[in-house]
Design a binder for these strands. Structure first.
Lengths: 243, 243
DNA sequence: ACGCTATTTTTGTCGTACTAAACTGAGTGA
DNA sequence: TCACTCAGTTTAGTACGACAAAAATAGCGT
């Protein structure tokens, strides 16, 4: 069995072109945000037919390395960790068709944030804490406006993802947010629930302030468990534990 | 701004076909491991040219929803969490061109396993512990055979990923393993290092046995930090902190 | 120098054709 | 009867040409 991300020994002509272009993007020959050469140029350059060139382009597009607007030139996009989320998007959407997929993903989120708040409690800098405080204040200020509260809620959690200096985390936050959003949009939002969530955030914040990772983790678990109860009702899962 | 995993209002004909086929796979009309209809059939069915059909097929292939061997019929593959890793593979490879990418990913692994060992210490069942014990024994038995040790080492960590009942974790383990493997292959392996790693595994195991999450986490951190020191040397990073 | 229009590219899609490989079934031999 | 071989058929991979529509560009007029 091969590795997961492998390429079989190139049998398709397009794969070779894909590899070449990938390399050029990595090497910086093709600069970020600049358009790809036209298909004809690529044909000449690689000595392939337009069919193959176009196939390569779609492949690169699906991999998230270039951005293809319908009738425009493809644009090179230097890969960042957001690109990961683009590539995973379609698959995730498939997985979320099954409510269990939503649960699994949500559990992943809980797992991640548990680790994050622990780390925050242990290693948050002054500036981190200031950011958290600001996010919390914004959160409190918007309790009565459910839409705005949703945004500041997300932002508060996002701040947690930024405390770690690992650039992967903000991308993951973006991913969780956009994947789970459709399900959260269906949840009814009420000021009293907002209040409850705000208080949970506050508890987490204070635990971080007191450098108490266990308390922070417990508060987060309780917070997200409560939130899950709100969301689970929006599913029309027919409780088919069989399938 | 759109969601991350969205599809723009279909302007490309292929996208419509992709969506249709995606839906059929999700609905179970196209069964797992069964071949896709031939391109001609799809042409007739969707009233599109072969070009478009083929484009849709490559897209599905890149998304990991079907498996395309060079001259064979594409095979439907019901998406699981491994599919995620397939989709992310190419992007990850790009990110790993930069040593900082390797570091970020490795840190993600450390972060993940820290949470996993904590959970294991708190919630591992008898059967989990038995699995860990077996993995540890296999690990010990292969200290002198570096190749075999590498396998059992990976398996030991993999056991940690399986303790959580979340199916995402085993997939993540597969991902970490295959992405980081190329770098680890370059690391020289010596029996004494194997011994050292085995002892670290044993410490982790014992901490889990004693239901001590902090000790387990600390042992894991130390273990992976030491392993990182071994790997970092294999990079030819010119210490360009500028870029 | 600026805005509008006409011309040229370029992309998206279609059709056809040809090659080589995989699939199918009939026929042959043990 | 079964397995095996070999031709014929189907299909994927690739190439070439064509055309409409949209974008990019050049040219024109003011």
């Amino acid at each position: 069995m091969n590795y997961i991300g492998e390429a079989a020994p190139d049998c398709r002509a397009a794969d070779a072109i894909v590899a070449q272009i990938e390399q050029r993007i990595a090497a910086g020959v093709l600069v970020d945000a600049s358009p790809l050469p036209s298909e004809r140029e690529l044909m000449l350059e690689f000595g392939a037919s337009r069919t193959v060139v176009r196939e390569a382009i779609t492949a690169l597009s699906n991999r998230g390395l270039i951005e293809c607007k319908p009738r425009f030139r493809p644009v090179v996009r230097r890969v960042g960790y957001e690109t990961l989320m683009i590539a995973t998007g379609p698959v995730i959407r498939q997985l979320l068709n099954d409510p269990r997929g939503v649960k699994s993903l949500y559990d992943m989120r809980v797992f991640t944030e548990r680790g994050l708040v622990r780390d925050a409690a242990l290693r948050a800098t002054k500036s981190d804490i200031q950011n958290l405080k600001a996010a919390l204040a914004a959160n409190q200020a918007s309790i009565s406006d459910s839409d705005e509260f949703y945004r500041t809620d997300t932002a508060f959690h996002g701040t947690l993802y930024q405390i770690s200096d690992n650039p992967v985390f903000p991308a993951i936050h973006q991913g969780f947010f956009s994947w789970l959003a459709p399900h959260w949009d269906r949840m009814q939002r009420l000021p009293e629930r907002n209040e409850q969530n705000y208080l949970a955030h506050k508890t987490i914040y204070e635990a971080i302030l007191e450098r108490d990772p266990d308390a922070a983790e417990d508060a987060l678990i309780e917070h997200l468990a409560a939130a899950w109860e709100f969301v689970r009702d929006t599913f029309d899962w027919e409780d088919d534990a069989t399938r």
